[in-house]
Design a protein around this nucleic acid. Structure first.
Lengths: 160, 160
DNA sequence: TATACTCGGACAAGATAAGTCCGAGTACTG
DNA sequence: CAGTACTCGGACTTATCTTGTCCGAGTATA
């Protein structure tokens, strides 16, 4: 049970992107967080493929949020990076072995899988209840408003 | 985000163990589910290490549940097999880069991590609300009572 | 029109999980 | 009381996935 480490990067990037309405290059985001720019590019590509951010090519290109931060949930980001599939996969072992349940009796999912998936639904629901805007507001309250302002200036201006 | 496949095996084994008050050998459980006995042994060892099942050595040895099925939750099994650590790991990237948050300002966890961990708590709470006894009852209702009775007889008797 | 900068996908390396094997220990049997 | 056959337990090898890196295609700028 291990989530991709790229989720953390992606979430922080989304929060940073709320502070800029102009495209931000992947290299700049990587420098800001002091992480591998090549690898961060891969995560940003996943976000772009999922339609959460829009890529602008060319000399002054980069990434911009496609929607308002209030309408991007943590679940959206997690699904984009970590994959949409469930963490628990049912291999239907009830249909194997000497006491295999006949296939025609398996109209409903295995009780074990049902319970596991119900827990996952609770997890997804909690993720869907938090938006990037909530996160940005929380960061603002924790680190102080001057932090995001400074970052915003640094993103728009020259190199750090 | 992928859970260890051994969790499914372990849960099914726990349900089966509720039907027998005498030790059941790992090889028998493997044959019942038609899975690799060598690998299933590893999962059972994890359950034993976590104190959920007790190992009986010797000629007629095997595994028995240590507690009543009503007091073993799905969370117990998942933690035993998949590890107790959180799925989301915070690498504190807010303390890195040109705009690093000073360490003395990081008394509370990163807002990103807080949100992710809150969702995981919801997931754990849902898992903790279901017990092995609930699962066994559900299996009973789904596959019919005769299934567990037949398995019980097969476990106590000779080879299948 | 040339250029320099951007993203995009294809390509290795390391880490983790999956699966297998053999040895230590114990209850049954003669 | 000794032998034996069966059990669990941990160490080893292999397969898969995540991580990390690289170079090529495309576009706005000068």
């Amino acid at each position: 049970m291990k989530m991709s480490g790229g989720v953390e990067w992606a979430l922080h990037c989304c929060v940073v992107l709320t502070a800029s309405h102009t495209p931000v290059a992947a290299a700049k985001l990587a420098e800001l967080h002091d992480v591998s720019s090549s690898y961060l590019a891969k995560q940003l590509q996943s976000l772009a493929r999922a339609g959460l951010i829009h890529s602008v090519q060319g000399k002054s290109g980069g990434y911009v949020l496609t929607r308002a931060p209030e309408s991007i949930t943590l679940l959206d980001v997690v699904r984009a990076i970590d994959g949409p599939g469930p963490a628990f996969v049912c291999t239907e072992i009830r249909q194997r072995g000497p006491f295999a349940t006949p296939a025609d009796a398996c109209t409903t999912p295995c009780p074990v899988a049902r319970a596991m998936w119900a827990a996952e639904d609770a997890w997804r629901q909690a993720l869907a209840a938090v938006t990037i805007a909530d996160l940005a507001r929380d960061v603002d309250a924790t680190s102080g408003p001057e932090a995001l302002v400074g970052i915003q200036a640094w993103l728009g201006g020259g190199a750090g």
